[in-house]
Amino acid sequence: MTTDSWKKVKEGKTEFEIIQDAERIYDASVFYNPKMTINRDVTLLMIETISKIQKKSLIFVDALAGTGVRSFRILNELSKTTIDHLFINDKNPKAVEIITKNIPTNEDNEKLEIIHSDALDLIYDFIKQKKPIDVIDIDPFGSPISFIEPSLNALKRNSGYLFATATDLQVLCGKYSEACFRIYNSYPTRHYLCHEVALRILLYNTIISAGRLGLEIIPIFSYHHEHFLRVKVKIEKSKEAANEQHKQIGFVTFCPHCSYHSTYIISENYETSICPICNNLLEKAGPLWLGKLYNRQYLIQMQKLLEDVELPTEKTISKLLETALDEIDDIPFFYDFPFVTRQSEKRGIKIQDIIDALIDAGFKASRTVFSPEGLKTSAKYEELTKLIKRF
Protein backbone atom coordinates (compact mmCIF):
# COMPACT_ATOMS: atom_id res chain seq x y z
CA MET A 1 0.00 0.00 0.00
CA THR A 2 1.08 3.60 -0.60
CA THR A 3 2.59 5.73 2.14
CA ASP A 4 0.63 8.78 0.92
CA SER A 5 -1.77 10.38 3.38
CA TRP A 6 -5.46 9.56 3.14
CA LYS A 7 -8.38 11.95 3.46
CA LYS A 8 -11.98 11.12 4.30
CA VAL A 9 -14.58 12.64 1.99
CA LYS A 10 -18.37 12.56 2.00
CA GLU A 11 -20.56 13.03 -1.08
CA GLY A 12 -24.28 12.53 -0.76
CA LYS A 13 -24.77 9.77 1.81
CA THR A 14 -21.51 8.05 0.94
CA GLU A 15 -18.23 8.33 2.83
CA PHE A 16 -14.98 7.22 1.22
CA GLU A 17 -11.25 7.87 1.37
CA ILE A 18 -8.95 9.37 -1.23
CA ILE A 19 -5.18 9.75 -1.47
CA GLN A 20 -4.10 13.32 -0.75
CA ASP A 21 -0.80 13.75 -2.60
CA ALA A 22 -1.15 17.28 -4.01
CA GLU A 23 -2.45 20.69 -2.95
CA ARG A 24 -4.54 21.18 -6.11
CA ILE A 25 -7.04 18.47 -7.06
CA TYR A 26 -5.91 18.56 -10.70
CA ASP A 27 -2.31 17.79 -9.66
CA ALA A 28 -3.30 14.70 -7.68
CA SER A 29 -2.41 11.28 -9.05
CA VAL A 30 -6.13 10.44 -8.83
CA PHE A 31 -8.25 13.51 -8.41
CA TYR A 32 -11.67 13.79 -6.84
CA ASN A 33 -13.57 16.79 -8.21
CA PRO A 34 -16.47 17.95 -6.00
CA LYS A 35 -17.63 20.25 -8.83
CA MET A 36 -18.74 17.11 -10.70
CA THR A 37 -21.17 16.15 -7.93
CA ILE A 38 -24.14 17.23 -10.08
CA ASN A 39 -22.90 14.92 -12.85
CA ARG A 40 -22.94 12.00 -10.43
CA ASP A 41 -26.27 13.04 -8.86
CA VAL A 42 -28.00 13.10 -12.25
CA THR A 43 -26.40 9.73 -13.07
CA LEU A 44 -27.81 8.18 -9.89
CA LEU A 45 -31.27 9.48 -10.75
CA MET A 46 -31.02 8.21 -14.31
CA ILE A 47 -29.86 4.73 -13.30
CA GLU A 48 -32.76 4.38 -10.87
CA THR A 49 -35.10 5.66 -13.60
CA ILE A 50 -33.82 3.15 -16.18
CA SER A 51 -34.19 0.30 -13.70
CA LYS A 52 -37.81 1.24 -13.02
CA ILE A 53 -38.71 1.78 -16.69
CA GLN A 54 -37.00 -1.44 -17.81
CA LYS A 55 -38.24 -3.30 -14.70
CA LYS A 56 -34.90 -5.01 -14.18
CA SER A 57 -31.67 -4.87 -12.21
CA LEU A 58 -28.86 -3.38 -14.28
CA ILE A 59 -25.34 -4.41 -15.24
CA PHE A 60 -23.35 -1.18 -15.03
CA VAL A 61 -19.82 -0.40 -16.26
CA ASP A 62 -17.88 2.48 -14.70
CA ALA A 63 -15.14 2.40 -17.33
CA LEU A 64 -13.03 5.35 -16.14
CA ALA A 65 -13.80 5.17 -12.45
CA GLY A 66 -11.03 7.31 -10.92
CA THR A 67 -11.66 7.34 -7.16
CA GLY A 68 -14.73 5.15 -7.67
CA VAL A 69 -17.06 7.63 -5.99
CA ARG A 70 -19.75 7.23 -8.66
CA SER A 71 -19.88 3.46 -8.26
CA PHE A 72 -19.82 3.53 -4.46
CA ARG A 73 -22.67 6.03 -4.41
CA ILE A 74 -24.66 3.86 -6.82
CA LEU A 75 -24.27 0.87 -4.50
CA ASN A 76 -24.87 2.82 -1.31
CA GLU A 77 -27.65 5.25 -2.23
CA LEU A 78 -29.87 3.49 -4.77
CA SER A 79 -32.48 0.80 -4.19
CA LYS A 80 -30.89 -2.59 -3.54
CA THR A 81 -32.61 -4.07 -6.61
CA THR A 82 -31.34 -1.38 -9.02
CA ILE A 83 -27.92 -2.95 -9.67
CA ASP A 84 -27.31 -6.57 -10.56
CA HIS A 85 -23.57 -6.23 -11.18
CA LEU A 86 -21.16 -3.30 -11.28
CA PHE A 87 -17.80 -3.31 -13.07
CA ILE A 88 -15.52 -0.60 -11.72
CA ASN A 89 -12.40 -0.05 -13.81
CA ASP A 90 -9.38 2.20 -14.04
CA LYS A 91 -5.93 1.73 -15.56
CA ASN A 92 -4.23 3.90 -12.92
CA PRO A 93 -2.84 1.61 -10.17
CA LYS A 94 -3.36 4.33 -7.55
CA ALA A 95 -7.01 4.60 -8.57
CA VAL A 96 -7.38 0.84 -8.13
CA GLU A 97 -5.73 1.17 -4.72
CA ILE A 98 -8.27 3.82 -3.68
CA ILE A 99 -11.17 1.75 -5.03
CA THR A 100 -9.94 -1.37 -3.23
CA LYS A 101 -9.62 0.51 0.06
CA ASN A 102 -13.24 1.70 -0.22
CA ILE A 103 -14.87 -1.64 -1.01
CA PRO A 104 -18.07 -1.92 1.05
CA THR A 105 -17.99 -4.53 3.79
CA ASN A 106 -21.67 -5.42 3.46
CA GLU A 107 -23.47 -7.61 0.93
CA ASP A 108 -23.01 -4.93 -1.78
CA ASN A 109 -19.42 -6.03 -2.38
CA GLU A 110 -20.77 -9.21 -3.99
CA LYS A 111 -22.15 -7.05 -6.82
CA LEU A 112 -18.84 -5.26 -7.33
CA GLU A 113 -16.04 -6.36 -9.65
CA ILE A 114 -12.84 -4.29 -9.64
CA ILE A 115 -10.81 -4.32 -12.86
CA HIS A 116 -7.37 -2.81 -13.52
CA SER A 117 -7.35 -2.23 -17.27
CA ASP A 118 -7.29 0.31 -20.04
CA ALA A 119 -10.93 1.29 -20.65
CA LEU A 120 -10.84 0.46 -24.36
CA ASP A 121 -9.26 -2.94 -23.68
CA LEU A 122 -12.03 -3.63 -21.17
CA ILE A 123 -14.78 -2.64 -23.61
CA TYR A 124 -13.28 -4.74 -26.42
CA ASP A 125 -13.12 -7.70 -24.01
CA PHE A 126 -16.84 -7.27 -23.34
CA ILE A 127 -17.50 -7.28 -27.09
CA LYS A 128 -15.37 -10.39 -27.61
CA GLN A 129 -17.03 -12.23 -24.72
CA LYS A 130 -20.51 -11.07 -25.84
CA LYS A 131 -21.11 -9.98 -22.27
CA PRO A 132 -24.58 -8.50 -21.68
CA ILE A 133 -24.19 -4.88 -20.53
CA ASP A 134 -27.01 -2.46 -19.71
CA VAL A 135 -25.16 0.82 -19.06
CA ILE A 136 -21.65 2.05 -19.86
CA ASP A 137 -20.52 5.30 -18.27
CA ILE A 138 -17.63 7.14 -19.96
CA ASP A 139 -16.37 10.07 -17.90
CA PRO A 140 -12.91 11.05 -19.17
CA PHE A 141 -10.80 14.13 -18.67
CA GLY A 142 -11.25 15.70 -22.11
CA SER A 143 -13.01 14.11 -25.08
CA PRO A 144 -14.99 10.83 -24.94
CA ILE A 145 -14.87 10.38 -28.71
CA SER A 146 -12.50 7.38 -28.84
CA PHE A 147 -14.73 5.41 -26.46
CA ILE A 148 -18.11 6.02 -28.09
CA GLU A 149 -18.23 3.52 -30.96
CA PRO A 150 -16.68 0.61 -29.01
CA SER A 151 -19.12 1.29 -26.15
CA LEU A 152 -22.10 1.28 -28.51
CA ASN A 153 -20.86 -2.02 -29.95
CA ALA A 154 -20.64 -3.51 -26.46
CA LEU A 155 -24.15 -2.28 -25.60
CA LYS A 156 -26.00 -3.42 -28.72
CA ARG A 157 -26.56 -6.96 -27.42
CA ASN A 158 -28.81 -5.61 -24.63
CA SER A 159 -30.05 -2.45 -26.42
CA GLY A 160 -28.39 -0.63 -23.56
CA TYR A 161 -27.58 2.92 -22.52
CA LEU A 162 -24.49 5.05 -23.00
CA PHE A 163 -23.57 7.93 -20.70
CA ALA A 164 -20.68 10.13 -21.87
CA THR A 165 -19.06 13.30 -20.54
CA ALA A 166 -17.00 15.83 -22.49
CA THR A 167 -14.88 18.40 -20.67
CA ASP A 168 -12.94 19.69 -23.68
CA LEU A 169 -15.18 22.74 -24.02
CA GLN A 170 -12.42 24.98 -25.31
CA VAL A 171 -12.38 22.70 -28.36
CA LEU A 172 -16.14 22.15 -28.66
CA CYS A 173 -17.00 25.81 -28.00
CA GLY A 174 -14.78 27.23 -30.68
CA LYS A 175 -11.54 28.42 -29.12
CA TYR A 176 -9.72 25.70 -31.05
CA SER A 177 -12.00 25.20 -34.05
CA GLU A 178 -9.45 23.28 -36.14
CA ALA A 179 -8.96 20.82 -33.29
CA CYS A 180 -12.74 20.42 -33.11
CA PHE A 181 -12.89 19.53 -36.79
CA ARG A 182 -9.98 17.10 -36.38
CA ILE A 183 -11.52 15.33 -33.36
CA TYR A 184 -15.27 15.67 -34.05
CA ASN A 185 -15.38 16.26 -37.83
CA SER A 186 -17.47 19.36 -37.17
CA TYR A 187 -17.00 23.11 -36.87
CA PRO A 188 -18.05 24.80 -33.59
CA THR A 189 -18.87 28.42 -32.78
CA ARG A 190 -17.96 31.03 -30.17
CA HIS A 191 -21.41 32.59 -30.61
CA TYR A 192 -23.84 32.54 -27.63
CA LEU A 193 -25.20 29.28 -29.08
CA CYS A 194 -21.83 27.61 -28.42
CA HIS A 195 -22.91 25.19 -25.67
CA GLU A 196 -25.96 23.91 -27.53
CA VAL A 197 -23.87 23.61 -30.70
CA ALA A 198 -21.21 21.70 -28.74
CA LEU A 199 -23.74 19.26 -27.29
CA ARG A 200 -25.29 18.67 -30.70
CA ILE A 201 -21.83 18.05 -32.20
CA LEU A 202 -21.24 15.37 -29.56
CA LEU A 203 -24.62 13.77 -30.30
CA TYR A 204 -23.92 13.93 -34.05
CA ASN A 205 -20.74 11.92 -33.50
CA THR A 206 -22.63 9.41 -31.35
CA ILE A 207 -25.34 8.99 -33.99
CA ILE A 208 -22.84 8.60 -36.85
CA SER A 209 -20.97 5.93 -34.84
CA ALA A 210 -24.23 4.15 -34.08
CA GLY A 211 -25.27 4.25 -37.74
CA ARG A 212 -22.16 2.32 -38.74
CA LEU A 213 -23.32 -0.43 -36.37
CA GLY A 214 -26.93 -0.37 -37.61
CA LEU A 215 -28.14 1.24 -34.38
CA GLU A 216 -30.62 3.98 -33.62
CA ILE A 217 -29.78 6.49 -30.88
CA ILE A 218 -32.54 7.81 -28.62
CA PRO A 219 -31.36 10.86 -26.63
CA ILE A 220 -32.98 10.68 -23.21
CA PHE A 221 -31.25 13.52 -21.35
CA SER A 222 -28.38 15.59 -22.72
CA TYR A 223 -27.31 18.83 -21.06
CA HIS A 224 -24.53 21.34 -20.39
CA HIS A 225 -23.46 22.43 -16.92
CA GLU A 226 -20.61 24.83 -16.22
CA HIS A 227 -17.44 23.11 -17.53
CA PHE A 228 -18.86 19.88 -18.98
CA LEU A 229 -21.33 18.35 -21.42
CA ARG A 230 -23.19 15.14 -20.64
CA VAL A 231 -25.12 12.92 -23.04
CA LYS A 232 -27.32 10.02 -21.99
CA VAL A 233 -28.73 7.92 -24.81
CA LYS A 234 -30.52 4.61 -25.35
CA ILE A 235 -29.65 2.42 -28.30
CA GLU A 236 -31.97 0.28 -30.40
CA LYS A 237 -31.06 -2.21 -33.13
CA SER A 238 -32.63 -0.83 -36.32
CA LYS A 239 -30.85 -0.02 -39.57
CA GLU A 240 -34.04 1.55 -40.93
CA ALA A 241 -34.38 3.91 -37.95
CA ALA A 242 -30.67 4.72 -38.16
CA ASN A 243 -31.12 5.70 -41.81
CA GLU A 244 -34.02 7.99 -40.90
CA GLN A 245 -32.07 9.50 -38.03
CA HIS A 246 -29.36 10.70 -40.38
CA LYS A 247 -31.98 12.98 -41.95
CA GLN A 248 -31.85 15.05 -38.75
CA ILE A 249 -28.17 15.89 -39.15
CA GLY A 250 -27.34 19.30 -40.56
CA PHE A 251 -25.99 22.79 -39.92
CA VAL A 252 -26.96 25.99 -38.15
CA THR A 253 -26.26 29.38 -39.72
CA PHE A 254 -26.40 32.47 -37.54
CA CYS A 255 -25.73 36.16 -37.67
CA PRO A 256 -23.42 37.49 -34.94
CA HIS A 257 -24.78 41.00 -35.54
CA CYS A 258 -28.55 40.64 -35.20
CA SER A 259 -29.05 37.12 -33.69
CA TYR A 260 -30.88 35.68 -36.71
CA HIS A 261 -30.35 31.93 -37.09
CA SER A 262 -31.57 29.13 -39.32
CA THR A 263 -31.01 25.38 -39.65
CA TYR A 264 -30.91 23.06 -42.63
CA ILE A 265 -30.30 19.34 -43.05
CA ILE A 266 -27.10 18.06 -44.59
CA SER A 267 -28.75 16.93 -47.85
CA GLU A 268 -30.15 20.40 -48.60
CA ASN A 269 -28.30 22.73 -50.96
CA TYR A 270 -28.09 25.86 -48.83
CA GLU A 271 -25.90 28.54 -50.39
CA THR A 272 -27.05 31.72 -48.62
CA SER A 273 -24.14 33.42 -46.85
CA ILE A 274 -25.76 36.82 -46.24
CA CYS A 275 -28.11 37.53 -43.34
CA PRO A 276 -31.62 38.26 -44.71
CA ILE A 277 -32.23 40.68 -41.82
CA CYS A 278 -29.13 42.90 -41.67
CA ASN A 279 -27.12 41.88 -44.77
CA ASN A 280 -24.03 40.91 -42.77
CA LEU A 281 -22.12 37.67 -43.34
CA LEU A 282 -23.62 34.57 -41.74
CA GLU A 283 -21.50 32.11 -39.77
CA LYS A 284 -22.05 28.36 -39.89
CA ALA A 285 -21.54 25.48 -37.43
CA GLY A 286 -21.83 21.74 -37.94
CA PRO A 287 -22.48 19.08 -38.97
CA LEU A 288 -24.54 18.51 -35.84
CA TRP A 289 -27.67 16.81 -34.51
CA LEU A 290 -30.88 18.79 -35.10
CA GLY A 291 -33.28 16.40 -33.35
CA LYS A 292 -34.55 16.10 -29.80
CA LEU A 293 -32.32 16.13 -26.71
CA TYR A 294 -34.79 14.66 -24.19
CA ASN A 295 -37.23 11.82 -23.68
CA ARG A 296 -40.15 12.97 -21.55
CA GLN A 297 -40.86 9.52 -20.08
CA TYR A 298 -37.41 9.44 -18.49
CA LEU A 299 -37.48 13.07 -17.33
CA ILE A 300 -40.89 12.67 -15.68
CA GLN A 301 -39.72 9.53 -13.87
CA MET A 302 -36.55 11.34 -12.73
CA GLN A 303 -38.67 14.20 -11.44
CA LYS A 304 -40.83 11.77 -9.43
CA LEU A 305 -37.79 10.03 -7.96
CA LEU A 306 -36.24 13.36 -7.01
CA GLU A 307 -39.09 13.91 -4.54
CA ASP A 308 -38.04 10.83 -2.55
CA VAL A 309 -34.24 11.10 -2.52
CA GLU A 310 -31.68 13.38 -0.92
CA LEU A 311 -29.00 14.62 -3.29
CA PRO A 312 -26.42 17.39 -2.74
CA THR A 313 -27.47 19.21 -5.93
CA GLU A 314 -31.19 18.45 -5.66
CA LYS A 315 -32.36 22.06 -6.17
CA THR A 316 -30.23 22.56 -9.29
CA ILE A 317 -31.40 19.25 -10.78
CA SER A 318 -35.03 20.07 -10.00
CA LYS A 319 -34.76 23.35 -11.91
CA LEU A 320 -32.91 21.64 -14.76
CA LEU A 321 -35.61 18.97 -15.14
CA GLU A 322 -38.44 21.49 -14.83
CA THR A 323 -36.94 23.67 -17.57
CA ALA A 324 -36.20 20.68 -19.83
CA LEU A 325 -39.77 19.39 -19.51
CA ASP A 326 -41.18 22.83 -20.37
CA GLU A 327 -38.73 23.41 -23.22
CA ILE A 328 -39.79 23.06 -26.86
CA ASP A 329 -37.61 20.10 -27.76
CA ASP A 330 -38.54 19.71 -31.43
CA ILE A 331 -36.98 23.09 -32.31
CA PRO A 332 -33.19 23.39 -32.03
CA PHE A 333 -31.49 26.59 -30.84
CA PHE A 334 -32.71 29.68 -29.06
CA TYR A 335 -32.52 33.46 -29.08
CA ASP A 336 -30.59 35.42 -26.48
CA PHE A 337 -33.40 37.62 -25.20
CA PRO A 338 -31.33 40.67 -24.09
CA PHE A 339 -29.51 40.61 -27.45
CA VAL A 340 -32.76 40.54 -29.45
CA THR A 341 -34.43 43.27 -27.38
CA ARG A 342 -31.38 45.53 -27.83
CA GLN A 343 -31.56 44.97 -31.59
CA SER A 344 -35.28 45.79 -31.45
CA GLU A 345 -34.53 48.92 -29.39
CA LYS A 346 -36.84 47.65 -26.68
CA ARG A 347 -35.37 47.20 -23.22
CA GLY A 348 -36.86 46.37 -19.85
CA ILE A 349 -39.29 43.81 -21.27
CA LYS A 350 -39.71 40.60 -19.28
CA ILE A 351 -38.92 37.39 -21.13
CA GLN A 352 -41.99 35.63 -19.71
CA ASP A 353 -44.27 38.37 -21.08
CA ILE A 354 -42.90 37.74 -24.58
CA ILE A 355 -43.24 33.96 -24.18
CA ASP A 356 -46.88 34.40 -23.14
CA ALA A 357 -47.52 36.80 -26.04
CA LEU A 358 -45.98 34.36 -28.54
CA ILE A 359 -48.16 31.53 -27.25
CA ASP A 360 -51.25 33.78 -27.42
CA ALA A 361 -50.33 34.55 -31.04
CA GLY A 362 -50.31 30.83 -31.87
CA PHE A 363 -46.57 30.15 -31.74
CA LYS A 364 -44.65 27.69 -29.62
CA ALA A 365 -42.42 29.41 -27.06
CA SER A 366 -40.42 28.44 -23.97
CA ARG A 367 -37.25 28.98 -22.01
CA THR A 368 -34.22 26.71 -22.50
CA VAL A 369 -31.80 24.82 -20.26
CA PHE A 370 -28.89 26.41 -22.14
CA SER A 371 -29.36 29.95 -20.84
CA PRO A 372 -31.51 31.70 -18.21
CA GLU A 373 -31.95 34.48 -20.79
CA GLY A 374 -32.66 32.13 -23.70
CA LEU A 375 -35.97 32.06 -25.57
CA LYS A 376 -37.04 29.26 -27.91
CA THR A 377 -39.87 29.79 -30.34
CA SER A 378 -41.39 28.51 -33.55
CA ALA A 379 -41.82 32.14 -34.65
CA LYS A 380 -39.47 33.40 -37.34
CA TYR A 381 -36.98 36.07 -36.37
CA GLU A 382 -39.01 38.77 -38.11
CA GLU A 383 -42.19 37.66 -36.31
CA LEU A 384 -40.41 37.66 -32.94
CA THR A 385 -38.94 41.14 -33.34
CA LYS A 386 -42.24 42.50 -34.67
CA LEU A 387 -44.03 41.24 -31.56
CA ILE A 388 -41.32 42.66 -29.25
CA LYS A 389 -41.66 46.10 -30.86
CA ARG A 390 -45.36 46.17 -29.93
CA PHE A 391 -44.48 46.28 -26.22
Rank of each mutant, 00 (worst) to 15 (best):
W6L: 15
K13N: 07
K13H: 09
E17W: 12
I19E: 13
I19G: 03
D27A: 08
P34V: 01
M36R: 07
I38V: 10
L45N: 05
L45F: 12
I47V: 15
T49N: 03
T49D: 02
S51T: 12
K52R: 15
S57A: 15
L58S: 02
V61F: 00
L64H: 04
G66I: 08
T67G: 02
G68F: 00
G68D: 00
V69K: 04
V69E: 10
I74T: 13
L75P: 00
H85A: 08
L86Y: 08
E97N: 05
I99H: 01
N102W: 13
N106M: 08
I115T: 11
D118A: 12
A119E: 00
L122Q: 02
Y124V: 01
D125G: 01
F126Y: 12
I127D: 00
K130S: 10
I133L: 14
D134F: 07
I136E: 01
G142T: 07
P144W: 07
I145K: 13
N153Y: 00
A154Y: 03
L155K: 08
C173V: 10
C173Q: 05
K175H: 04
A179S: 09
F181H: 02
F181I: 02
R182N: 07
L193T: 08
L193N: 11
Y204R: 11
I207L: 13
G214D: 12
L215R: 10
E216S: 06
S222E: 03
Y223D: 09
L229S: 09
K232H: 13
K234A: 12
I235Q: 01
K237S: 04
K239L: 10
N243M: 10
H246Q: 14
K247L: 03
Q248W: 12
I249A: 06
I249W: 05
T253E: 11
C255V: 01
P256W: 02
Y260D: 01
H261N: 09
I266M: 11
C278A: 00
A285N: 03
P287D: 08
P287E: 14
L288T: 06
W289A: 09
G291F: 07
G291T: 12
K292D: 03
K292N: 09
L293D: 01
L293M: 05
Y294G: 00
L299A: 02
Q303M: 08
K304C: 09
E307D: 11
D308W: 06
V309H: 04
E310Y: 05
L311A: 14
T313Q: 10
L320E: 06
E322H: 15
T323E: 13
D326P: 02
D326L: 14
E327Y: 08
E327A: 09
D329R: 12
Y335I: 10
K346Y: 07
R347G: 04
D353I: 02
D353G: 01
I359Q: 14
F363C: 02
A365G: 08
S366N: 10
R367I: 15
V369H: 00
A379V: 11
K380M: 02
K386P: 05
L387P: 05
K389S: 15
K389R: 15
R390A: 09
F391S: 06
